[in-house]
């Protein structure tokens, strides 16, 4: 909070610290929303310049991170809408593809390539719908609450809950095998050793 108010008073170092602190996560999220790097670059740049120039008018916020994520997402989507030809290639912001759980499993378990279970979990995540992947990343990587995710993705809380529930149900098969016994055992030791 001190950081944010220092920044609002025009402290450049506070601004630089905010950038340093959140940029990796923001980029990582940006890459989930669109694969267009130039667009991510422009959107991040716009976002930070915007908040720097308008710092006096910004509301005090209790979560800088949430504010930045939500603003970045809105900005990317606005920019995508200016280039409608790019939109189709990116997130399923518009429509959710039909889910066929059997086809999903067959695609992964039937894969003849050199994959083992850990890779399968990675691949299974890649095969989730774009919205599911986005929600999974926001929840488990960036640690946002359901309410925050709902506000960001402009859905209601229950829809986010359902979206995540379907994703977890699809991935469930891979939890049991993936992650490997090795990590599993080490976690167990950590856990009992705490």
């Amino acid at each position: 909070m001190l950081l944010w108010s220092a920044f609002q008073n025009g402290d450049r170092e506070a601004f630089a610290s905010i950038y340093q602190k959140y940029i990796d996560e923001l980029l990582s999220y940006g890459y989930r929303v669109t694969s267009d790097r130039q667009l991510i670059r422009d959107s991040v740049q716009d976002l930070f310049l915007h908040i720097w120039l308008r710092r006096g008018n910004l509301a005090a916020t209790d979560s800088i991170k949430f504010y930045l994520f939500r603003s970045l997402r809105n900005r990317i989507i606005r920019n995508l809408e200016k280039h409608p030809e790019r939109l189709h290639a990116d997130i399923g912001l518009v429509t959710e593809p039909a889910e066929d759980s059997n086809a999903f499993e067959a695609a992964i378990f039937g894969h003849d390539g050199p994959y083992d279970s850990y890779e399968k979990l990675a691949e299974a995540i890649n095969r989730l719908s774009p919205r599911q992947r986005e929600a999974v990343q926001l929840r488990y990587l960036h640690g946002f609450s359901l309410d925050e995710i709902a506000e960001m993705m402009q859905m209601n809380n229950q829809s986010v809950r359902n979206l995540l529930h379907r994703a977890i149900t699809q991935l469930r098969l891979f939890f049991e095998t993936a992650g490997g016994l090795l990590v599993f055992l080490s976690t167990l030791q950590n856990f009992s050793g705490r």
Partner: peptide, 16 residues
Amino acid sequence: AQARQTILNLAELSRP
């Protein structure tokens, strides 16, 4: 223990 590890795996594997 496994659920905890799974959450960590999900976090890592969902990171582009």
